[in-house]
Design a protein around this nucleic acid. Sequence first.
DNA 1: TTGTACGCGTTATCAC
DNA 2: GTGATAACGCGTACAA
Lengths: 331, 331
Amino acid sequence: MASLQEVAARARVSIATVSRVLNKSDKVVPETRATVEAALRDLGYRPSRVARRLRMNTGHAHLVGLIIPDIQNPFYAEIARGVEDTAYAHHYAVMLCNSDENPAKERFYLDVMQAESVDGLVLPPFSEDDAAVAAAVNSGVPVVCVDRSLAHVTTDLVEVDNYAGARAAMAHLFERGHERIGLIEGRSQVSTNRERRRGYVEALAAQGIAVRKELMRAGDFRQESGRVIAQELMALKRPPTALFVGNNLMAVGALAGLRQAGRRVPGDVAVVGFDDLPWAEALDPPLTVVRQPAHEVGRQAMELLLKRIEEPERAPVTVRLRPELVVRQST
Amino acid sequence: MASLQEVAARARVSIATVSRVLNKSDKVVPETRATVEAALRDLGYRPSRVARRLRMNTGHAHLVGLIIPDIQNPFYAEIARGVEDTAYAHHYAVMLCNSDENPAKERFYLDVMQAESVDGLVLPPFSEDDAAVAAAVNSGVPVVCVDRSLAHVTTDLVEVDNYAGARAAMAHLFERGHERIGLIEGRSQVSTNRERRRGYVEALAAQGIAVRKELMRAGDFRQESGRVIAQELMALKRPPTALFVGNNLMAVGALAGLRQAGRRVPGDVAVVGFDDLPWAEALDPPLTVVRQPAHEVGRQAMELLLKRIEEPERAPVTVRLRPELVVRQST
DNA sequence: TTGTACGCGTTATCAC
DNA sequence: GTGATAACGCGTACAA
């Protein structure tokens, strides 16, 4: 709670001198420095980041914002760790918010962070044409998109090759002899979903298999929607023999739905999910997935953000990471 | 980016008037109000939370801090959601940090948050005698502890009856006919761990069963330690027939360890975990757990914090919630 | 080498 | 009803 004023008074110097000592400016004689440092210690001085931020130009808050759609989704939790580990290594604090796939909440946190004068933002936009995020970018806030991209605004971006991931998943299912393959996708306004869907469609086409609308269903990335849709698909006259599921939570839900429908995995139906899970190995059966390097996504995003904070005018960069098919026992 | 100054200039009034319009002070004639509101809109004015915080006394930041040990642990993620949902409902922003069960990181974030003048803090202390947290409390920052408590400082606290939870788990195992029960506990400096251990020990005593040191092993709350310890226990001359595991992650690890040791669950060894998991149902086998109402813990903690911010001198309160045994197929 | 003084964007207390 | 103006705590240009 002690301010520069109080420290200065105790050390019998001006606040400028105290400030100089704090900022390692060497224009202070060792003797006064010692006095000041003593006063600093005695009073347990802690600089106010608020006052500093008000005084300084943007870019010196040592604070960045991270807005993620669902903190309870291990994929985003891992990205968050990647961002946070990197930020911590650079002595940056991260203000993490959870938007709950809710545009109103996203907007609220976006407002808060700008009003807090954070140095920059890392986030997966709610949709490809997320006006609130676009506005932030255009108003000059350094923004790095992760996972999902924006359609009409270019920013730094760290993404995964979702198309390639989907093709790998499909190739694996073909190899296992499947032709009638169901798709449980997520929200269609999201770039990752579009790419995964494209991978699914083009893989079928390349294999000369007709794309059937009734085998393609959209969920909302949540566990429950995966469960419900899996059951719907199994209720079809000719149900699919395999499922490609658009994210991790829906894949777990699908497993539950299949069990409730009395289907065995992989005996009756094979399942491939997108995004790995820390406990995928412990599931019944262990889940085959397209693994994304989530921690690395977060790490690189934070690295990019730091560069942009340092050099705001540099050209936006896109980093595309490679996903990896992890075959377990659900296929 | 527009400041009061600029808005005032455009509306040809003083900044005081603009401020009055913003703060709904009714001492402004409708005509000027309209002019000011137009200027506000035209410039897209956004108040600076930083400047406001510098000017106002503490308690008006509309920002609270939340420091959790592991964002990748679903138990803490759920607490975070409880805190965040409640905060959002009251238009508070949450600054969420991940301490990684690392006291240095916890201290860093504690410093940052105090320097940011947050209105208050929610956290599970690293240990019962966490000096950094105690210092924050003593320096007057409103603090609500969740899950874990402090030994020598009293704060608002929302916890779960860990002792009762452990007794319930043990009673269930006795019912199933187990007598030789292993314990995989967490770090011993943590209050929750102490209570769970006490439940384990007293349950055995009440049953007239000797407490055997070699059946009690300490992990670090992480998955890997559960796996390793489960294997160690199975390597004993007389291995336990059941395991009581001190948290969710270690329980999943234990399942993996048992499989690697060639034991069937619950055939050869029964397992009860502490803390539920969103996918506990989908595990092999579905895991029996002592479920904690984590979202409710977070909700009540935030509620308590809001009360304390409003009335800093009110007497600290302890809320103790009841855990619930959820029997699935691992026992 | 050190001190004085200004401004960052607010809110609040005075005058008018 | 409205307008100056003083803080809040800090960094820094400028003066001494």
